[in-house]
Structures are given as C-alpha cells and as structure tokens.
Design a protein around this nucleic acid. Structure first.
Length: 552
RNA sequence: CUGCCCGUAGCUCAAUCGGAUAGAGCACCAGCCUUCUAAGCUGGGGGUUACAGGUUCGAUUCCUGUCGGGCAGGCCA
C-alpha cells in the first residue's frame, strides 16, 4: 500500500515537472488519525529546488495525482503535508494479507540467506549468571530472532574465557575450599572468589561427582592437591550451571568457543606471528607491543608481557580472526557496556592483520547496567561477598517470560531498573501479561464461537467500519515495517513497544464492540479481524521469545 | 584529567532513523462487569524534553558548550 502511494506521488511529481533527483519520497504514518493514514512531506522537500511555496506545490501535486481505488480522499494540511485517507478496501486488505501469510506475516528477506554470527552472553565460567548476563541473553537472543525473521542465516555463539588469570583464581578458591579454608580465613587471597557456590563446587569435587556437560563427562578426583583436576572440574561444573540457566531462559547456542582451544590449536601463536610479520609490532621493556595507535587507539597495547604470557587482547584478536576465516562477513557482538573499551582494540588488532577485514567489523551492541530493586530498595551487588542477584533467582521468582520481557523491552544503551515487585505482579502493572492477555482473550472468543476458523478467510470485510476497527487495522499494517526497523537498527525493544500498542488497540476494541453478534456478516468480519490480530501478536511474541498463552 | 553511553510527567519508560497538539503504564481523582476473560476499558489533572547557543520551513532527535548520572582508562579479564 505504501509503495502504491509512493508511485502515485512519483507520477504526480513527474507531471508537474519536478526533478526528484536525490529526493526520496517519504511516507509517514501520522500520529493522529485526523491526519489520515499516510502523510508525505514531499511538497516541503521540493520547496527549495522549485522555489515555490510548499502549500502551492502540494496543491499542484494533489491536482495531478492519478485516481486510485485505494484512496478515499487526499487533504493538504499544515505547512504543506499531503495526507492520504485510505478507502475501506485498502484498509481491510491487511486482514487478508495476514490470513494468507500466517506465521510468515511480517517476515522479510533483506538478509537474503547471508551468514551472520551473533556472539552474546560469553560469561566467564567463574560463577553463576547474574542479571547483567540475563540482559545480554535476552537482547542477544531477540536480535537473533529478528535477524532470522529478516532472512539472515544466524549462528549463535558463546565464548568461554576458560584460560587466564581469573581461572587460576577460581581454581585456587575451590582448592582452598577443598582443604576447608574459607573466605574468613586470613590466608584467603584478596582476589579469590568468595561466593557460597565455590563451596558447592568443592564439595562436588571431593564427593567425586560426575559432571555431564555438552560433550564431556568430568569426574571429580577428590584430591585437593591435584590443581589441574580441580581446574577442569570447576570449569565444567560452572559451565553446566550456566547452561542450565540459559536453557531455562529459552536461550540456546549453536557454537561454544573456548579460549583454551585457541591456545591448544596454535591460533594465538599464529596471530602473534601474523602481527609481527605485518610490521605493526615492536619490542620495548622486554615486552611485545602492538602499535594500535595506528588504527585509532589512544595508546599502544602490550601483546606479550615481559614475563612471557599474552595479554587477554591477543586471544581476542585470534578469536575474531577465526570468526572471519569461518566466513562470517557479518558478526555482531552483544556485550555489557563495561567492556566498550575492547572495541577499538579488537578492531585495531584485526586491521593490523592486514587481511582485508573492514574497519567497522565486527559490529557491537552494548547494553548498559541493570539495577535491581526489591521492596523499593536497590539490591546491592557485592563482588567481595560474592552475593548478587542471579538469573536463576529471577527466573524462579518472576518467571521466564516476564524476565525476558523486562530485560529486552528497553533500549539497550540506557541503564535499566529491574523492579522485582513489578515484574512479579500478576496485575495490570505488568506489560507482559497485558500483551498475553490480549492474545488469550481472542482465543477465548474464538473458542466460544462454533464456526470453522477457515471460513473467515472468505469473510466479507466491508462491515469493518468503526474507528476502533480502523485503528486496529492500521496498527496491524504497521507490523512488517516495525520488524524491519527493529532488525536493521538492532533494537528488539521496538517490537515490545509495538506489541503493547497493538494489545491496547485490541483491548479498547474488545470493550467497545461485541464480536459474537447476531448479524452474521458483521460477526464474521470482526472474527476475521481479531484472528488476524491474534496472528500478529503471536508472531511478535515469538520474536521476543515469549509464549502466547491461549488461557490466562 | 581523557574517552564512550545516558539525561523526557512524582516513578518506570516511548516517540517509526528531522515532522503536525511530545505519548503509555504506575501513582492520584471520577466512572464502566445480569452481556465474548475487569490481568480489561473510558475520562481528568500532571512537561520550558537538564541548561545555553547553533544548523532550517520544522529539533526530544543533528552540531558545539555547560551541568548531572553511569561505565571504562594495568605488562588484569
């Protein structure tokens, strides 16, 4: 429909001799229904090149607009907006489109089947997942669903930092616990992990329990002096816990990459060699440096420390080089904003490899911090005490759907306040239930109707002529655009906002009009409309990974 | 001190990539269930979009500066 009107405008512009040149014809959906179903600012855009009053141009354009069955009337308003009012045929066409496309309605093929890899969560296996990881999981998973819905071939990847200093700390912490030494003991190291879960790991290890992970079975050796055994056991244990949480959160991954594998497969060493060969490195103070300032960093970075080990940044570059070599021309990293400083460094390292990686590869989506509120007070996170709100707590306390919704329904680059009391509330404070309730209501009406849902596809839709019906149909018509915008801008929260609006239109309609009326044509038309609405709600909830319950 | 993100109603957040009178929910006030789910609906009050400039037909949106909040800034990850 939008395209149709754009064509009409284009023909009109040609008739009045306007050279569109670079100006693209833009159609907006006005906020107010007084301004029609579509509005164009074309006259304003042409005012300068034509050196005429925008209103005069608008009148001229309207005069030369070809006739169309889909347009009821055209008005000129304000500074020179051209407002289009659709005919009944055009408005109801969306219901037919939804009926025929079903689950496919709203999907696009802008990705054209190209590969994209999305890396998200990537928590270190040193403790349980917390709210921040939850936000990453929710946003990342919704991004994947959006990309899939727009024609991309998505690979979901999780990167485990299972090497390096923090794993040494973890191993030591577990080992001390195995020997009966706790955080209260003066011998406890400053940067040891203090959480109670460390004790759980130690007990499991000493009890010689078996960890069944994705592809490995690790048995606790029960020997507190076997550091390597403790290391493997602890990592496997915590990975298993994280995997269980993610599963409960309806998030799955296609590929798990391990930092340790980059070392054992020689990828780290290879990357260092490549960088040295490329000529962007130098030695100073017994360390090996990469001249990242050449690529926009504010200072050069150490690759190999004077004591011989590599800094974390080298495996990071090696890992991303590996992603590139696996053929991902597009990679999106979803991370916490506290890691934003790595962006410049990783990209600089990849540029220095000189293997044709674009400057802005990979893309990043950063999410800001989450503050958790309970009982009107902030729940403080204490890393020292090892106490924080875990994702598992949230899922158990407020449920998977509500947790996902609250974490994904807000712009990622704003800090968010997660109020447990509101998320838990099974009341109208809670937007998740508001949306799901709209879906359940429709299901309920359809259940009470004794007809066959398939005959609604042939329903005559001309009885749909009330303001509520027009508003709802317009809302449904927006859905495909919203999906496209959310996918291109990588903003899942756009979908959440849309669903709230759509549910609101449905609830208003429900309260205003009875659907199961005696007049058969009216009844069928209305049922066709709410069935289409149900489909859109379902599709949208699916993009957010939320359930669409038939009863509530 | 430097870099990145944010600043919108009392609170939590929107605003379709520069559009028309800045919108919802919560809270507050007043109404709507013998009728398809009241987890709902209708109406009301509540704003100098942090502040000051600039760009233009038009700015919450873009640019500059100031203030405020968050996060980073190690041969840690």
């Amino acid at each position: 429909m939008k395209q149709h009107i754009i064509e009409l405008l284009g023909q009109a512009a040609a008739k009045i001799g306007a050279d569109l040149g670079h100006t693209e014809i833009i159609l907006d959906r006005p906020k107010s229904s007084e301004h029609g179903d579509f509005a164009s600012n074309l006259a304003m855009q042409l005012a300068k090149p034509l050196r005429q009053n925008p209103r005069a141009i608008a009148e001229n354009l309207v005069k030369n607009l070809p006739d169309s069955d889909f347009i009821q009337k055209v008005e000129i308003a304000g500074a020179g907006f051209i407002n289009f009012f659709l005919s009944n045929i055009a408005k109801t066409a969306i219901v037919k489109a939804i009926q025929s496309k079903g689950e496919q309605f709203g999907r696009h093929n802008v990705g054209e089947g190209q590969k994209v890899q999305v890396e998200f969560v990537s928590a270190n296996p040193t403790g349980p997942l917390h709210v921040g990881h939850g936000r990453g999981a929710a946003v990342g998973d919704c991004l994947c669903r959006l990309l899939e819905a727009t024609g991309w071939d998505v690979t979901r990847e999780f990167y485990y930092n299972d090497a390096g200093q923090q794993i040494d700390n973890l191993t030591l912490s577990v080992q001390l616990r195995c020997k009966g030494i706790g955080p209260d003991n003066p011998a406890w190291p400053e940067d040891g992990y203090r959480g109670d879960y460390i004790n759980d790991v130690a007990n499991a290890y000493m009890a010689r329990l078996t960890i069944d992970a994705e592809d490995q079975h690790i048995v606790g050796k029960g020997d507190p002096n076997n550091t390597e055994a403790i290391r493997h056991f602890a990592v496997a244990y915590l990975r298993r816990e994280q995997d269980a949480d993610l599963k409960a959160f309806q998030v799955h991954f296609d590929v798990y990459s391990l930092e340790s594998a980059l070392y054992t497969h020689g990828k780290v060493e290879e990357t260092v060699q490549d960088l040295v060969t490329s000529g962007h490195t130098y030695e100073q103070d017994d360390a090996l440096w990469l001249r990242t300032t050449t690529f926009g960093d504010d200072k050069d970075r150490v690759m190999r420390k004077s004591e011989g080990g590599y800094t974390y940044f080298v495996p990071d570059v090696a890992y991303h080089k590996d992603k590139w070599q696996r053929g991902f021309k597009r990679v999106i990293n979803e991370q916490g904003a506290d890691h934003h400083s790595t962006i410049t460094r990783v990209r600089a390292g990849l540029q220095a490899l000189d293997i044709g990686i674009p400057q802005d590869w990979p893309e990043y989506v950063l999410h800001q911090m989450v503050t958790v509120m309970r009982g009107g007070e902030e729940v403080k996170i204490s890393k020292r005490a090892g106490s924080y709100v875990t994702l598992r707590d949230l899922i158990e306390e407020v449920g998977c759907d509500a947790t996902r919704f609250f974490l994904a329904a807000r712009k990622a680059d704003s800090q968010l306040v997660f109020d447990i009391d509101i998320a838990k509330a099974q009341t109208n404070d809670n937007p998740v239930y508001y949306i799901q309730y709209a879906h359940a209501r429709i299901c309920s009406v359809l259940n009470q109707w004794d007809g066959d849902i398939n005959i609604l596809k042939d329903a005559d839709l001309t009885p749909l002529n009330t303001a509520h019906e027009a508003a709802l149909m317009q809302r449904l018509a927006e859905y495909p655009e919203i999906v496209k915008i959310a996918a291109v801008e990588l903003t899942p929260h756009t979908i959440a906002n849309y669903l709230k609006d759509c549910a609101s239109d449905l609830h208003s309609y429900y309260n205003d009009s009875k659907f199961l009326v005696d007049d058969e044509p009216t009844k069928l038309a209305r049922l066709a409309l709410i069935t289409a609405t149900r489909q859109v709600l379902r599709n949208g909830l699916g993009l957010l990974g939320l359930s669409a319950p038939e009863k509530m």
